[in-house]
Amino acid sequence: MFEAKLQQGVIFKKIVDAIKDLVKSVNIDASTSGLSMQAMDSAHVALVSLKLNENGFKDYRCDRPITLGLSIENLSKILKCAGNDDTITLQTDEEEPSSLKFFFENQQASKISEFSLNLMSLDSESLGIPDTDYSSVIQMSSAEFSRICKELSSISETVEIETSKESVKFSVQGDIGAGSITVKNNQSDKDVDRVDLQIDQPVKLTFALRYLNMFNKAVSLSSTVSLNMSEENPLMVEYKIDDLGSLRFYLAPKISD
């Protein structure tokens, strides 16, 4: 028996919206400790990693580990039928399920929707991600980071992110010209202005803005985002989801030929 009930079903809707342009199908692994998922984009350049702890669910039961192979597009179609204020329950009784049941219930418990999504058998291409002490960690407003990436992507396909003890600089160079946006360490009380820099070693790395813009679809999951970088390593972009867990994106850097 597997059953997971989310009080705020809208969070699940937002997660699926955030990853649906990046990955087409995923294996969700359910265990006693919660749900986890790892998937790469078709070019194997970016990776999405989701972890949802059992404690964050209103009800959670998983008698034995199961793998749920899902088409994100089809999952998205079913989740469109859930209201933003609905609870969402995932359920299956089978040991090797061929489908996953969904229940959506509104706050008044006056409307209950039930769907079943056919599951797929997917080859897992799981990557082992080593625990990394990143040499530059930036925590800032997710909306602000999203705005910077969107603005710069009209000038260039790539952005160079350079950290120092005091600031982080986003630089672009394109056919029309060049530019940069520098964001300084700022211990404001307001989330939208706050920028926390933890710089053990400065880094300078270049990334494709197309992918960063896709990651930023997760902006509604968290008011802050953390950018974790080490020289010659993939960038890790993390959106923490309250008590529930986290959505992480990894992106391999670009290098000069």
């Binding site: 350049v45 799981s126 790539t158 270049t206 494709a208 993939p234 391999a252 850097p253």
Partner: peptide, 14 residues
């Protein structure tokens, strides 16, 4: 000219 690296360069297949 910039080359896009792949993640498998950094992470191991499991």
């Amino acid at each position: 000219y910039e080359i896009q690296l792949m993640l498998s360069r950094y992470f191991n297949n499991q």
